[in-house]
Amino acid sequence: MIKKITLPIKDEDILGLRAGDAVLLTGKMLTGRDAAHKRMTESIAKGDLPFEIKGQTIYYVGPCPAKEGAVIGSCGPTTSYRMDPYAPTLMDNGLKAMIGKGKRGKEVTDAIVRNKCVYFAAIGGAGAMYSERVKKAKVIAYDDLGTEAVRELWVEDFPAIVAIDSKGNCIYNR
């Protein structure tokens, strides 16, 4: 059975999710990948992060440009391990959920358990489908990074699989 989850994600929803569960996400999420993560952690160190990270979900994606009349271009997940050096800092500062693809390092799993967070895997290679699940998109920070800028997305029925749950169980280790 597919679980429907509303974003921003609630703590009780996170605690009820188990690795392997299929979910459909609806609501607001932020985007960020390599370059944005470097800047976010630098901003947190300086205390001038230009948006609220507490309670947020970050989707690791660098979308294609939107063609005329479209909200966004193709926008599937990118590989998550490259964000591993930054993810624990973000979770320790209130980030609750991440969406990407592939395995994470031990430090990320530890931070997920410590902060009661969740890591979802989206389907890598399904960028066209995901673009149709995004209903609104706007750049909210680091505009100069182009595709790597931080965007706020409003999504409906965004399919994903729970890859690491709040207890540290991982779908890739089964």
Partner: peptide
């Protein structure tokens, strides 16, 4: 089941991309 869901999603995605002229994957 989970892998099967992923494969079916990828098949649907390829059809959608071709019909609506959306890049199959954002990493072009």
């Amino acid at each position: 089941d989970t892998a099967s869901f992923a494969l079916k999603t990828l098949c649907d995605n390829a059809k959608l991309a071709s019909e609506r002229k959306i890049p199959v994957c954002q990493d072009t």
